[in-house]
Every structure is written in structure tokens, then in C-alpha cells.
Design a protein around this nucleic acid. Structure first.
Lengths: 326, 326
DNA sequence: TTACAATATGTAATCGTTTACATATAATTG
DNA sequence: CAATTATATGTAAACGATTACATATTGTAA
């Protein structure tokens, strides 16, 4: 690989001139510019990023650390983060932690070493240490979808409010024995549960048995199968995530129980199959694109002004009615 | 940020000793080791990656450049690449090009500057130049899902063969007027079309009108609506991708045409809703996880031995029967 | 004891950029 | 025309780590 010295020699100028020319800084005569340009082209010169970074740290890369890249919600989030970042001249590296705290820590260290301009992360633990370490190195972080601590910028969906609304809607349908299947050890599930319970309490309803399970399809199906054997059976069910809902729906479908008359069905997130079942699923759709954009914007602001006080945004999801509630 | 000099001073040793200690190289006395360890901990020292990279280039990062991060196929691919890479001590940065050649070039340049250990890419153009440039910088690349040129390592699904099999299966169902909706300007669609035509020809069938469209849901729906008005109407349809199939299915569903009796339906990729419709979709499921693993493995091999002759793998998809074909 | 290897540490050059500073020339002003 | 300013370029010192080489201290074999 050609270095700046090679270019300088080839063009018959000093390295300083080449450097200035590459960065469009200071004065360069047309003659020198032409010579340098020719040399650059001839040698295929590209500045060595490591050397640049050593001289003055910083980059135009932001890291997006997500807990599950296969989740369509994060897919949408990625895309919107990237679209927005690009407008501001930033690139995005996406890192997938697979909900593994080890991986999360590893990636946080990695992007710190790479000296990215900032990080957007949906943390999979409640641990603050790795994030604080980032902060100490002057790399700003914005939390998205999940909060940890309260010192960081964060962009969240208003899960509690959304759950509250959705539950109200269920009650409106005349359902009274409402089962809930909620993820365990999950920030969002926790908030959604709170909203669910609060709406129930407000309506003077006692909570129908609630399951807390690992948020996977199989677990969702198993939980639903159990619930359907309860006596009295529930007349509605609410699921805290798309994967859980997928399993639960399968269980209901298998037993040929009719939605929405025999049982009402509602969930969070908008699974890709929501419009392919009959009736379609009534859901709270998360504002993934908005979250991504807001997170990116917040990060840009903080990069510009590291001293600004941290802000926490809560964005509303939308209640999408498709018929799975009476 | 503390530098190696700070640590050396704090520990009362030279920078060389600190460096050796960090890398576990050469001789270090227990006394010195202890002092350095203490200093490192006290100052929170972490080696500056840029400086290391300047001294001796190379990293343990591989870049995965995909054309559409929202596509579940690529989601699965990402995950398997990462799982495999991790086993070998590599991390993965995912870059999304959104099928935009500009972005692709930009990311290729970026990861070259970052001096990643290697690149896995599903190229969105047929342009070889950017890849050759990478190569010249000594950064190996493996193509996945799509091929460009023939000099690079590549891991592809055997689209033609798969299309051939799927078409044979359709013919087996007694369908004879088989419409095809295929993506335009798409490497995979091209191959799939070839297999489709070859199976038809072999069966002595003339091809029923074939549409080439941009691979989006709306375009798929529009194309299907048109096709349904043809006279004679087709008795089966094959779609070259999940998005196209989604639109096409909607069009069929809307007109209450019965699958599989009035019309047979088959497609490539396995849309998330494939098991939620009735009957389920008969598809060719792409071996995404296998592709990812194979690509990662190939890349590792090439990183170890840059001189090995390039190999092109073709992996078989599986025909999943679910009832949408008679 | 001498000689030689093994162990332990330090010195200083190097990687490729950027930039403050010095210097030189050209253009502009009074 | 002298004095000033704007333009143009070069010199050399950083940035933070690694490592070949030199040197010093042990241990060990003859």
C-alpha cells in the first residue's frame, strides 16, 4: 500500500502538501493540486485510517448494538437508524448480541477500541458498568427500546401506556377473564405487564392467572396450551411479544377455538403473519422506525454537545385493529 | 485516556515491559508483572487500537455486507455467520446496503480502511472493481447468495436446481398453465427462472406468460391481479421471492380463489406467514444458516491461506410441502 | 573460575498521518 | 517603494504501540 510519503515523492512535494490537499485544508496552488492528484491516482493512494485515528481520534461510524438481529422490530430499527445516520454523513455498524451479556460486553469494548463516534444500544442486561466505561472514554451512548439506569439518553416505546390502552380495548370487547403471557426477565415485558395490571385494576377486575415465560415460540405455545385447560377457561389472552404470540396463536388454532368469539386475542409487536390469519391480529405496533430515527438524532446531538443533559423519549405505539378482538 | 507511557511511569518500568506484559510475550519477572498489572488496573489502561493497527495491521473483525437487513433470509444468515465467527474468535460488523450500489461501495471502502480481516458480502451490483480493490489491499472477500465474476470464493444456493425441482413438483400436481412472477435485475431470480424454464421445456410445456418485476410486495400483487385476468387463466403460479409471493398471495386471497384446487401456489424463501395460511405454503426453503456457516468457514480458510484457489459452493435448498400444491 | 546460556529489562526506531511553525514568494496597500 | 498581507510550501514533532537490538543480571556447566 502506498503511503503519503510515496505520493509526496511521486508528486515532488512534501507530505504536508499532500495531506492538505487530501483534506482540502489551507492553501494549495493549482499546479501542486494537479501533481498530487495525478500521483494519488497513479499509486492508488488511500490514507491509512489507523494513522489518521492515531493523530486525531474520532470517526464517522456509529455502532448499533442490538439484542436480536432476526427480530423484525430490530430490522426496522436498523434500517431507520441507518437512513438517518447516512443523511448526517455517518455509517452504521450493526452488532448482534443474541441477548448474551458476554457478547454485549465484548462488542462494547470492541467499538470503544475502534473509537466509534457513538453507540446506540438495546441493552440485554441491567449492568451499567460497561456503559459507564464507554462514557469515560468519551463515547456517547443512546439506549433504545430498553432502559438501564437513568443517566443515559434513551428512546423507548411507551410500553405501559400502550398495554393500558390495549387492555382497555380488550375490556371494551366484553372480555372478563383475560389471561396474560408475558416474557420473563425482560424490560419491555415488565412495563407492559404493569400497564396491563393497571388497566385491569382500574376496571375492578382481578388479574386472571398470568404466565411469565422465556420469550420463545415454543414456550408461548406450551403456556397457551396449559392456560386453555384452566377452569374456568379464559375468554381472552394478551401476549407480550411477537414470538410468544406466534406460539400462543398456534395453540389456539390447533384446538379450533374461534377468534374473536370464543377467545379474544391481542399482542404486542406486529408479527409478519398478523394480516394473514383470519381475522387479522389486533396488536400494538411498535414505532420502530420512529425509535430508530429519534435515537440517531439524539446521538448526533450528543456527539455535537457532550454536555447536554440527558433526555428520555417515550414514543407511542399504535393500536392496530384487525378483528381478533370482539 | 491513559497511554502505555503513563502505565510504564506508574509501574516504574519501560514501555517495552508493559507492552510485553499486555501481549504475554517474552520474559517478564513476577515482580514486574505485578507492578504493571496494578498500574494497568489503577489507570484503567486499555491499549489504543489505532496505534496497534498502525504498527502491525490486521484485526479480528469481519464485515458482513448485506443488501437488505430486514429480509429474514439475511437475518438468519447474519446470525449463523456470527455464531461461527465467534467460535474462531472473530467479531462481526454488519453493514446494510439497502440494495444501493453507492452504499455498497462506500461500505467496502470503509471496511477496507478499518482493515478488517475479511468481508462476506451479498453484492447488489455486478461491479467487480470495488471487490478487486479490496483484494489488492489484501483483504479477502467471500460472496454469499449472489455471485459476481468467478474469481472470488462464493457460497450460493443452488437456485436453478431448486427451481427445477419445484417446477417438477408443480407439474406433478397436474398443473399445466403455470405462471411465473420473477424479480427483475436479480441474480437469484435469473437463476431460478432458468431452472423453471428448463423443467418446463423438459416436460414439453410452453412457458405460460412470465412477469419480471421489481421484487416488492405491491408489484407482486399488481402482477398477480393482472395474471388472474388472463384468458385462459393460469392454474398455478410460482414466485421467485418471499416479497413477491406475499403480494401475489394477497391478490389470490382477495378474489377468494381456492388454493390448491383452483390455483396452485409455490414460491422461494420461506415467508414467516407460510405456516399461518390455509393450506400452508409449499416453498423452497433456502439454507440460510448453512450458507452463513459455509461462508464464514471459507473466509477463515482464506484468511489463513490467501493463496488457495477460490472455491464456489452450491448448497441445496429444501422443498417444504405444506399443501398449496395439489 | 570461566564461559555460555537463559532470563529480564531498557533504548530507540518505526508505522502513516496531521499540523504548528518557519519560511518563501506573490499580491496589495499607503 | 517599503510595508504589509495573502498565498504556498516545507520541516519536524507529535499520536501510542511494538520490537529488534543492546545491555544487565542470573543460573549452570565445564
Amino acid at each position: 500500500m502506498a503511503s503519503i510519503k510515496d505520493v509526496a515523492r511521486e508528486a515532488g512535494v512534501s507530505t504536508a502538501t499532500v495531506s492538505r490537499m487530501m483534506a482540502n485544508k489551507g492553501y494549495i496552488s493549482d499546479k501542486a493540486r494537479a501533481k498530487v492528484e495525478a500521483a494519488v491516482k497513479k499509486l492508488g493512494y488511500r490514507p491509512n485510517r489507523a494513522a489518521q485515528q492515531l493523530r486525531d481520534p474520532g470517526s464517522r461510524i456509529i455502532a448499533l448494538i442490538v439484542s436480536d438481529i432476526q427480530n423484525p422490530f430490530f430490522g426496522e430499527l436498523c434500517r431507520s437508524v441507518e437512513t438517518f445516520a447516512q443523511k448526517r454523513g455517518f455509517c452504521v455498524f450493526v452488532c448482534n448480541t443474541d441477548e448474551d451479556p458476554q457478547k454485549e460486553i465484548h462488542y462494547l469494548e470492541l467499538v470503544a477500541q475502534e473509537q466509534v463516534a457513538g453507540v446506540i444500544i438495546s441493552p440485554s442486561t441491567q449492568g451499567l458498568k460497561p456503559l459507564k466505561a464507554l462514557q469515560k472514554q468519551g463515547i456517547p451512548a443512546v439506549l433504545v427500546d430498553r432502559q438501564v439506569g437513568t443517566d443515559f439518553d434513551a428512546v423507548l416505546s411507551d410500553n405501559k401506556e400502550a398495554a393500558y390502552r390495549l387492555t382497555q380495548r380488550i375490556l371494551q370487547g366484553g372480555y372478563r377473564r383475560i389471561a396474560g403471557i408475558f416474557g420473563a426477565n425482560s424490560f419491555t415485558a415488565e412495563e407492559r405487564l404493569a400497564g396491563f395490571l393497571s388497566a385491569l385494576a382500574e376496571a375492578g377486575q382481578t388479574a386472571f392467572p398470568i404466565r411469565r415465560i422465556p420469550a420463545f415460540e415454543n414456550e408461548g405455545r406450551a403456556a397457551m396450551e396449559q392456560i386453555l385447560q384452566d377452569n374456568p377457561a379464559p375468554d381472552a389472552v394478551i401476549c407480550s411479544s411477537a414470538l410468544i404470540a406466534t406460539g400462543a396463536y398456534r395453540a389456539i388454532h390447533k384446538q379450533k377455538i374461534l377468534i374473536p368469539n370464543h377467545i379474544g386475542f391481542a399482542c404486542f409487536d406486529d408479527p409478519p403473519w398478523a394480516t394473514f390469519v383470519n381475522p387479522g391480529l389486533t396488536v400494538i405496533r411498535q414505532p420502530a422506525a420512529l425509535l430508530g430515527e429519534a435515537a440517531a438524532e439524539l446521538l448526533m446531538k450528543r456527539i455535537k454537545d457532550p454536555e447536554r443533559t440527558s433526555s428520555i423519549l417515550r414514543l407511542q405505539g399504535s393500536l392496530v385493529e384487525r378483528g381478533s378482538l370482539r
